[in-house]
């Protein structure tokens, strides 16, 4: 039953319709969470004992950084599925994830830099955490560039998938960089085995924002995947029927 549904989901017309129905619901939920998270984080949560109000940038910075890693893993996993099973939909999901992941990486780097100037006293340092996160941005950009450089989209997806899989070694490096080496960037607050070292009134908005960002990624990726499917399958019957139904 589940496997049948999974196979159905792999067919482009079915996925196109399914994603189309899903987007408004997830988008609405994302908007609600985003507004709630921002309100709780920027207005309700107390200020920090050392950083005062400046710490509130974590409500953008931390979810972005988490998403930059999460999306890369999704992209690489879809890339592996695309390489092994030659599944078209996996190629489309992998390649539709790349721009969203690149944007979140960029956002994490910029917000971190803005916070770093007043708090650390510098915009940028070449410590292990910051450098590996910058490398992640270049990996995303590399995947996007490689995919758009090759004319045949199925071959392009295969090449981009290999790059994505090779780059996946960077993910544990980013996460553990603050533990393996001395870095200027602080250690993990929430994603560790101990209890989070953050007050619960500050933690709740952070988790809400993380969920909102995750939904934003899913919605944005589904939209991109639908466009990518239409453009790839523009000569197929289901797209022609869709266009006709639209005009008729």
């Amino acid at each position: 039953m589940f496997m049948r549904w999974f196979h159905e989901l792999g067919s482009p017309p079915y996925f196109y319709r399914f994603a189309g129905r899903l987007i408004p619901w997830l988008g609405g939920l994302c908007l609600v969470l985003l507004v709630t998270g921002l309100y709780l984080g920027l207005i309700v949560a107390p200020s920090d004992y050392q950083q005062g109000e400046s710490y509130r940038i974590i409500y953008i910075h931390v979810p972005s950084a988490w998403m930059s890693l999460f999306i890369y893993v999704v992209m690489a996993a879809c890339g592996a599925i695309a390489l092994i099973w030659r599944m078209k939909l996996a190629e489309v999901v992998a390649i539709s994830s790349a721009p969203v992941g690149a944007s979140f990486t960029f956002l994490a780097l910029v917000t971190g830099s803005l916070w770093g100037k007043p708090m650390w006293g510098t915009w940028w340092v070449w410590d292990a955490r910051l450098t590996s996160e910058l490398l992640l941005l270049f990996l995303y950009l590399g995947v996007i560039a490689l995919y758009s450089a090759i004319e045949d989209k199925r071959q392009a997806a295969r090449a981009a998938s290999i790059l994505a899989i090779v780059g996946v070694v960077n993910i544990p490096l980013i996460h553990y960089s603050v533990e393996w080496w001395n870095t200027l960037h602080q250690g993990p607050t929430v994603t560790k085995f101990d209890a989070p070292s953050i007050d619960v009134r500050m933690l709740v908005p952070l988790l809400i924002m993380a969920l909102a960002f995750k939904l934003f990624y899913i919605v944005n990726m589904l939209m991109r995947a639908r466009c990518e499917l239409l453009s790839r399958e523009r000569n197929s019957r289901w797209v022609a029927e869709l266009a006709e139904a639209d005009h008729g």
């Binding site: 200027l184 602080q186 500050m202």
Partner: peptide, 11 residues
Amino acid sequence: LAKHDENYMPP
């Protein structure tokens, strides 16, 4: 440069 720790709490 100041190194921030991983603790966040209200004053």
